[in-house]
């Protein structure tokens, strides 16, 4: 058996619900196993740590061929129906309810949990500049805005996971 994983750096690059949650679950799960965890948010993934937006993360009902209604084993949702206004909000609220049942917290609370668990949370400098953001736009748990070079530096010895 090879050595135990002792450190992970997880990159979150997408801003949909299914783009952000896997990274959060993996980072929290890492801490629960005693594994050091860094979360790095880039591109639209950055919405996961923007304080005025990260409580409104939605699931995409268009361009998602795996989307089924009314549940995971139902009928495929035609793209044209997915485009109806409110469809994405509806699908999101259904999914949030299921997550609540499993005690998976909303994004802001999840970030707090990971941060309190000793996980580090970073934003990507290139995206921050491109989107014209400042430190004030981020939730309090964000440790620092990092360049890609700094990200590699602090990821020394870590497994890097891109989501």
């Amino acid at each position: 058996m090879s050595d135990k994983i002792s450190k992970v750096s997880i990159i979150v690059s997408r801003g949909s619900l299914d783009g952000i949650y896997p990274g959060l679950i993996m980072a929290n799960g890492a801490r629960m196993e005693g594994i050091e965890a860094n979360l790095f948010f880039t591109f639209f993934g950055l919405y996961g740590i923007l304080k005025n937006y990260n409580s409104k993360i939605k699931i995409a009902t268009v361009g998602n061929p795996a989307m089924r209604v009314p549940n995971a084993k139902g009928f495929p949702l035609p793209t044209i129906l997915g485009a109806i206004p409110g469809m994405s909000a509806f699908a999101t609220s259904m999914m949030n309810k299921e997550m609540e049942k499993l005690d998976i917290p909303p994004v802001p609370e999840f970030l707090e949990m990971i941060h309190d668990a000793g996980g580090k949370i970073y934003a990507c400098k290139a995206t921050v500049d491109m989107f014209h953001l400042t430190q004030d736009d981020f939730c309090a748990q964000v440790d620092k805005v990092l360049t890609v070079g700094e990200f590699y530096e602090l990821s020394a010895g870590a497994q890097i996971i891109f989501t």
Partner: peptide, 27 residues
């Protein structure tokens, strides 16, 4: 119970749990 239930129902803070049982608190 998972971490969130520890927080919400047990009234135990995440930080405290990690301090009391380091490196894998709930396990």
């Amino acid at each position: 119970p998972g971490m969130r239930r520890m927080n919400k129902v047990g009234g135990i803070l995440t930080k405290d749990l990690y301090a009391l049982f380091p490196d894998g608190p709930i396990k």
